[in-house]
Structure formats: C-alpha cells, structure tokens
Design a protein around this nucleic acid. Structure first.
Lengths: 343, 343
DNA sequence: ATGAAAGCGCTAACAT
DNA sequence: ATGTTAGCGCTTTCAT
C-alpha cells in the first residue's frame, strides 16, 4: 500500500489514509473533526478507509499542532481511599462525552509527590488541574501560577484559594459533630485520628473549639500521621479507653477508624451507644450498615467532583458565569451509635 | 528576554533555554537527558537556565520526535473497588523511578468502555497494556493485536491469553473454599454474588463443582449483575435465609457482601458461626477486623500488580527472561466466622 | 469544498 | 563535546 517505510511506530497515519482515499491529509483531518466541512460521499469513503486501515489519530501530533490537549489533571492523595473514588465518579459524570480526558494522579499524601505530579502533567500539556485544597509546596504553587491554567481546589475550602474552590468547611463540620455530641449529653468526648492530613487537622480543630466553647476538657485525643485502617481504629479505641476510662463518646476523624473501633467494641463487649458513643466522618457506605449504624458527617463527594469539573470545563470553554468558590456543605447523619435510648 | 512571540501555548521551550544560554537546542536536550554528554560547567549553566526560566519539556513533542512515550496503560474495571487500588499500588511499586508513566483507566465493568479506553490510550501512544483477564470485545482484541504492543492480562488466568498473564485461578479458589466448608462439616452451603463479572462467575463455578463432586445440592444460590455493596450483602442474607432456612454456610463472592451479611446477622441476632457460617473472597482488610473475623480467600493483589508491571517493563526493555504467565495463587484465611467450637 | 505550505517542540542521525 | 539538518504526525493559516 504505502511506499514509505518510516522508522516511526509503524502505525497508520493520517497520510496513509489520505493516500488510500486519494485526497490530501487535511481533508481526512476535516472529515474526522469537522464532518460537515467535507462532502457527504467523500466523507463516507474516508471513514471507511479509516476503519479498514485501523487508523487511530496520534494525539501527540494533534496536540502539538493545535496546542490543545483536551486533557485535565485530577490529583488526589490516595486512590485506595474510597473518599476520592467518589470524587472521581463525580468528575467523570461531567467530563464524559465532552471530549476532554481526565488524567488521574495520586500523591500518596505527599506534597513532594504532588509537586512532581503537577510538573509531570504540565509536561503532558493538561489544560487545567483539580487537586486537594490545603498545603502545597512553594514550587507547586509557582508551577501552577506560572502555567496560568485554571485550577480547582477540592474537598476543603481555602482561605487563600489558588484559583477556584469546591468543598466544605471541615473545621465547621468537626465543630458541628462535636456540638451535637455535647447536646446529646455526652460528657467526655474524645477525638481519634490517623493520616492527619490538612482536612483531618481541621476537623480536629473543630472538635477542640466546640469543647472549649462549652467549657469541656479538650485533651482526650490521640492521633497519628500514619495511614488509617480498620485495625488501627480498634487499636485507637483500646488505647484511649485504657488511658481515659471515663470516655463516653469518641469522634473518629474518618469512618474507617470509627468502624474499626466499632468492631473492637463488639469484640470487647462494649455496648454502643450505652457504654460508648461512636461517630465517624465522611458517610461512607459502611456506616449505614454496621450494627449499630454509625453516626457520621455526610460529605457530598460526588457533588464535589461534579462541581469542580463543571467549573474547570466552563473556564476552558470561556464561560465565567459559575461562582469560582462553592461550599457544598455537609450533613450530620445521626444514627444508633450515638443515640441513647435511656440514660 | 525572548524576542519571539508565538501563538502557541506561550510556554518556555527548549529553544528559549538554548537561546538564553547561547547554545543549540540539542545541547540543552542532551544536558537534560544524557547529562554525561555535556561538559560539566555548560551543563550547570543550562540547568540554571532551565530553573530560572521554569522550563518544562513538552512531552508531546518529545514523544512525537522519539516515537516513545514511556507510558503504559493500566485498565481496571473500577477504582472504587479496593481490589484494584491494591493492584495499582503494586504496579506503582515497580514503575516508580523507571521513567515510565502509568495512565490509569476504569471501564466501569463495561467491555464497551474498555474498548474505548484501549483506543484512547493507543491514541496517546502507550507502549503496553495491563488489563483484566476475561472477556473483551472483538474490536478490543483486534486493536491490541494490531498494535503489536505487549499486553498483560491480570487477576485471572486465561486459557487463551492475549499475550502475558498474571493472576490466579478463581474457579479453583471458589472450589477450594467450598471444599473447606464441606470438610468443616457444613451441610447446606449457599453462594451469594453481586457484580457477577467474569471472575465472580468462575468462583461460582468452583463452588458448584465442589458441591457436585461431593454429591451436595448446588442450587442454594442468588446472584445479580448489579453492583456489590454492604447493603446488598445484608439483603442477600435475608433473602437467602428466607428461601432456604436450613442454610448453614454462605459463601459470598466478595468481602463486601460477606461483611454486609455479617452486619445483618448481628442485627438479626443470627450467631456466627453457630447459626450460620460466612465466608468472603479477596482478603480485604475489613475481614480481619470484624467480630467474628471473616473467613476469606486471600488474593495477592499487590503482587499481581508488581509482577504484571515487571513483565511489561521487561518486555519494553527487550528482556524476555520472565515467564509470560504467572499463577500467583491464593490462600484461604480460615477465621472465626466459619470455625464452630462445638457442634 | 478541497488543498499547499508551514510549523508546533522536540529528538535522531549525522556531522564537526 | 557541540552543532546542523531533517522530520515525527498532525493542524493551522491561507489559498483555490
């Protein structure tokens, strides 16, 4: 067919299709991208040839020529954490069928790795970023700002946003849950945390503020920066019950820890909520299924993904009608793990 | 600085750096990619300029010129399923610091979407694929075979592998677990499933074969193709207990279902394992933490990711010393949920 | 409605 | 050790 014999990938190119049909490359390009600009019968012949030859456009070349990649980067701390897969689903909801492509990166909760990802994806020519609010390295900030690309920070709400922002106030959420526990009559309210990232620390601060404002002790707290797990939730429960036997409510900074603590209570015969009240954070599915069901703070993660993607795409399409900052709020799901039937 | 004013992305290019330093583009390129080929002092000046100007190489251009992307695609059915994030971690273990980049795609358990992803990533010029074994559309197969790229099928073991394969025999694993339950003395062993993908169906077949070989009834089974969840595990338990009150062991096709069923048992006062034995599949963390702990089939998912990546990279580097097919095996974690202390 | 020429930013191959 | 030339595969002008 083709008389050429390039050293390249050996793949079929636009030129091969053009040659096959007997038209110029640009006509094939048009037939694919702006079908109405090519006469019907010719376009059909071209599409047939594309199919017959198995032509797949080389995006590198396309992007290079057009200076557009139609790719956006979604950076998350972790992909094993269900919280972020929900966000991803939201982003997909919106990006699907827009012609944009989502490049996913996970930093493993490392700011250094996040910086590396930003740099890498800039090299890939992404047209915008969605990444967690909170801390970033100076270089991350400078890379983003130099790039001039739209950025949406998600999950939290930033006082000093890089650009746009979609999330909720974790300090306020931690405060609200703690206050709810206070109002429910619990006396010694502890806080347990793992993987204390930016937002987990904010929840902790909310817990502390609520206790202080109520004149309660705010020292019943154990946290670690190590990863969160069911197992560690159980360990945390044991350690805290040993150190503060009079503890009567425990607010865990995420649902995994809360569920792990719940399991440990079952194991030890600690009755929830009469011996101890237990609350989590995020409203993961598991919290609705355990026995007793776990009280938790519901966070609309899929909505966060959707609204973040919506804003990013709007900006890329030159639409600036959307607010650049959105508080998606939260809701406390008060369930059996904190509901005492008798005192 | 630069007197040019291109319509392009406005980004700093190799040429800008070269001009700034007063050398040719290729020297800058070398200084970055083959540092030892550029004299020390000059290289330092170049690196300084790169830093000062904030130059980030354009990968599209680089790939286009070199016909190499150093990118591989990892396709998984779902990213909310913890099973696959473990695989991803394994892949990362190996790919990290090799200069290769992992492009992640999730098909939502849709073969059509998988095909679309393969096509998309071929357009991105990936140099290899890691994807779930099992069914693929004809076009997926033809795209892959035409591409000539190395492919590793993971999770399951294929009779007719596309290329390479790393996983375990899910039929055998289902068989083994069922046989273990039979040997433990359980009489009416049911199977519950959701999201019945290729591998879940194999587990089901293993369950059935074990029962048939033992001359037991093999009709105590409820499955759905809808997504799996804790909630559905509970519903399944209820439905099955209603329909088959004499059921004394339930093998769930994954740990989420098993955990959901366990919670429902706690709710209904069904004692595990004396009233009912419960087993899951995968060995997710939760199984070790529940009360009682859940018997499950441990699958070395991180290893699968590692070995798959190892094989793919080896092939890309021209090394063919590794076996093209690897059975990573499985292990039954026999725990309290199936261990009767008395009969 | 279709085409020709030029060039995106980089690297391979071949100089020097 | 450094430079020159050509070209990757596509899209953007600007023609016709």
């Amino acid at each position: 067919m083709s008389r050429r014999n390039r050293p390249g990938s050996g793949r079929i190119t636009l030129g091969d299709v053009a040659e096959h049909v007997g038209v110029s490359k640009i006509t094939v390009s048009r037939a694919l991208r702006q079908p109405d600009k090519v006469a019907d019968p010719l376009r059909q012949r071209i599409l047939d040839a594309v199919d017959a030859l198995g032509y797949i456009p080389n995006r590198q070349a396309g992007s290079l020529a057009s200076a557009r990649t139609h790719a956006i980067a979604l950076l998350v701390p972790s992909l094993s954490n269900g919280v972020f897969s929900d966000v991803l689903r939201g982003v997909d909801d919106i990006v699907q069928d827009t012609g944009y492509q989502v490049l996913l990166g996970h930093s493993g909760y490392s700011l250094q790795e996040e910086e590396h990802l930003v740099s890498t994806y800039l090299g890939y020519g992404v047209e915008g970023f969605i990444l967690p609010s909170g801390q970033h390295t100076d270089r991350t900030l400078s890379l983003l700002s130099r790039s001039g690309l739209p950025v949406v920070e998600i999950m939290g709400l930033s006082d000093t946003p890089i650009d746009m922002s979609v999330g909720l106030d974790h300090e306020k959420a931690g405060y609200s849950m703690t206050q709810a526990l206070i109002e429910a009559g619990f006396q010694q309210i502890g806080f347990g945390g793992a993987r204390m990232d930016y937002r987990a620390r904010q929840r902790h601060q909310g817990w502390q503020r609520a206790l202080r404002e109520a004149g309660r002790r705010d020292d019943i707290c154990m946290t670690t920066t190590r990863p969160s797990s069911f197992r560690f939730g159980g360990a945390l429960l044991n350690d805290m019950m040993t150190r503060w036997p009079s503890l009567d409510a425990l607010f865990m900074c995420n649902d995994d820890l809360a569920a792990g603590a719940l399991f440990e209570c079952q194991r030890r015969g600690i009755l929830l909520p009469d011996d101890l009240a237990l609350a989590g954070f995020n409203g993961m599915d598991i919290t609705a299924s355990t026995e007793p069901a776990l009280t938790t703070v519901m966070t609309p993660r899929r909505t966060i993904g959707q609204e973040a993607a919506r804003r990013l795409l709007a900006r890329l399409e030159g639409d600036s009608s959307l607010s650049s900052s959105l508080d998606v709020g939260f809701e406390i799901a008060w369930r059996a793990s904190t509901t005492r039937t008798r005192r």
